[in-house]
Design a protein around this nucleic acid. Structure first.
Length: 485
RNA sequence: GGUCUCGUGGCCGAGUGGCUAGGCAGAGCUCUGCAAAAGCUCGUACAGCGGUUCGAAUCCGCUCGAGACCUCCA
């Protein structure tokens, strides 16, 4: 390969060459979902983006430990309001951990539909309470947090005396201090910019644990600091998440790690962009989230039809992970057709015969594929290159072009590997047994016999009827094939 | 109000100082009994106005428009 992998590092605000701390090992931490409701399709995009990144790192031969947490501790909505998980539990009159269980299972099922690989470790916040309490104590001991009415707050002002709080999200502390909104009920804090690392629970709060400071629950940012450190070490390679987590979540995480462990948690910070719907960000809290189920069933007022998980995955991969992607029916339908054409080519690849000469240079074609992915995981370009491959495949199939045996093998392998292993695209199961194939072969044989005796009335009738039933008939040079519409 | 991002052909979406992105849709042609599929060709796009430059969609400034973060959020 001529090019090296480069990644856009939010911390540096530029694209940098990717150099793992301990090659061939790579530590990758991604902020996972809060399991208080179904994920929406925007969440799916983020995890699909990191799935692409994970898959490509694996493909390059790195030994990746991919950690993605499950946030199962509720966190405050805002003042005097109970947290999301407790609220949901109260509304549905069930245990908070039932909420957690239900939506964790749902999350896994959904991500499997979209063919994302499971992480190596998927730790939960509730299972790491002890570690979180320990980190709070450490930060307290170092004098960078203070206790107030049973809650513990991170002392941002004191921390920023010799640390650059705001380095990730590009804010400076003075502006932050001036611009922090004045919320009620923050009297416990010395300063509005301070954030809770332990919060005393109100009596009605259901999820709570005993800690030296109070019966309460940990601050939201804490779990990631603790779990990433526990499983990947104090400094690991890549920390990822949605752009919306840059501030305050990731900024606070860095501060906690610096304060508690004395070093920055990650070398590279990668942030994925949002999915918009009619130009607006999807957010659970805004009620603008379209769920994967609604997408797959088409059961949503703004959708004119259902879209399969692979169509959606392909659609997402056609945009770069750092760009916003807007959603509409026309674009999704285009993706559906394009995806089908791509997968048809994959199938056609197996029927190709090699020749004595090659009509293009496989290595050059491959090189561009890798160059695209090495450029900060540019999947849209990689897909464009794959479509160039589709054209080449069709030329071999229909126009008599050839590759030598070894070139054809190399091309086939690269083409398939990229689609299946790197992009994670699979043929949608048509839940056929061999029965349909057998039946179709028989019917098409009858039709070809009719054609042979120029009985076009019969052959067209068969084709039209099969068409109605959802099968598309194609008469090619090498015989007749069919596909589902 | 502060910080920042973006505005590309009918739609989605790459690129980013001079070289074809790609997909879908549309038009024409070839192949074919017809059709489908496929191949080839085409539209000459970069919000507007200035500036820098031999040359800008790409750099700078302004204007307009959209969005994100500053508060839970992927």
């Amino acid at each position: 390969m001529k090019t090296a992998l480069k990644v856009y590092n939010t911390l540096a605000r530029k694209t940098e060459e990717f150099q793992p701390i301990n090659p061939p090992f790579v530590g990758l931490y991604v902020c996972g979902p809060t399991v208080y409701s179904e994920v929406h399709i925007g969440n799916v995009r983020t995890f699909t983006s990191f799935d692409l990144i994970y898959r490509y790192l694996l493909h390059l031969g790195y030994k990746v430990r991919y950690v993605r947490n499950i946030t199962d501790v509720g966190h405050l909505l805002d003042d005097n309001e109970e947290d999301k998980i407790s609220k949901k539990a109260r509304l549905e009159n069930i245990e908070p951990m039932e909420v957690v269980q239900r939506y964790t299972v749902d999350f896994h099922k959904t991500m499997m539909l979209f063919n994302t690989l499971p992480p190596s470790i998927e730790p939960t916040a509730t299972a790491h309470l002890i570690e979180q309490i320990e980190l709070i104590q450490t930060i307290l001991d170092k004098g960078l947090a203070y206790e107030s009415n049973g809650s513990v707050y991170f002392d941002v002002l004191k921390y920023s005396a010799d640390h650059n709080y705001g380095e990730l999200s590009g804010r400076n502390i003075d502006e932050l201090l001036v611009n922090t909104r004045d919320l009620d009920g923050q009297d416990d804090k010395k300063h509005p910019a301070d954030f809770a690392i332990w919060k005393k629970a109100e009596p009605q709060h259901i999820m709570k644990w005993n800690a030296p400071w109070s019966l309460g629950f940990p601050g939201w940012h804490l779990e990631c600091s603790v779990m990433s450190t526990k499983y990947l070490g104090t400094t690991f390679d890549i920390h990822g998440g949605g752009m919306d987590l840059k501030f305050p979540h990731h900024e606070c995480e860095i501060a906690q790690n610096e304060a508690g462990y004395g070093c920055a948690p990650a070398k590279y910070w990668l942030h994925t962009n949002m999915l918009t719907f009619n130009g607006r960000k999807m957010a659970k809290s805004e009620g603008t989230g379209v769920t994967p189920k609604e997408m797959i069933t088409g059961n949503h007022p703004l959708l004119t039809q259902a879209y399969s998980p692979m169509t959606i995955r392909f659609f997402m991969l056609q945009a770069h992970y750092r760009s916003t992607l807007d959603f509409n029916n026309e674009a999704l339908q285009a993706a559906e057709k394009g995806f089908r054409r791509l997968m048809t080519a994959v199938k056609d690849l197996d029927g190709l015969k090699s020749g004595n000469t090659s009509f293009f240079t496989v290595e050059d074609w491959k090189e561009e594929l890798y160059a695209a992915m090495n450029d900060d995981f540019n999947s849209p370009i990689a897909i464009a290159q794959l479509f160039e491959g589709v054209r080449l495949i069709n030329l071999m199939k229909d126009q008599g072009e050839t590759l030598t045996e070894s070139d054809l093998a190399a091309f086939t392998s690269a083409f398939k590997t990229f689609i299946t292993d790197v992009l994670g695209l699979t043929t949608e199961e048509e839940n056929d047994s061999g029965e349909v194939d057998g039946l179709m072969d028989f019917i098409l044989q009858l039709r070809n016999e009719a054609k042979a005796r120029k009985d076009y009335a019969t052959s067209d009738e068969i084709r039209d009827k099969l068409n109605e039933l959802g099968f598309e008939i194609k008469d090619g040079k090498e015989g007749t094939t069919f596909s589902r519409k």
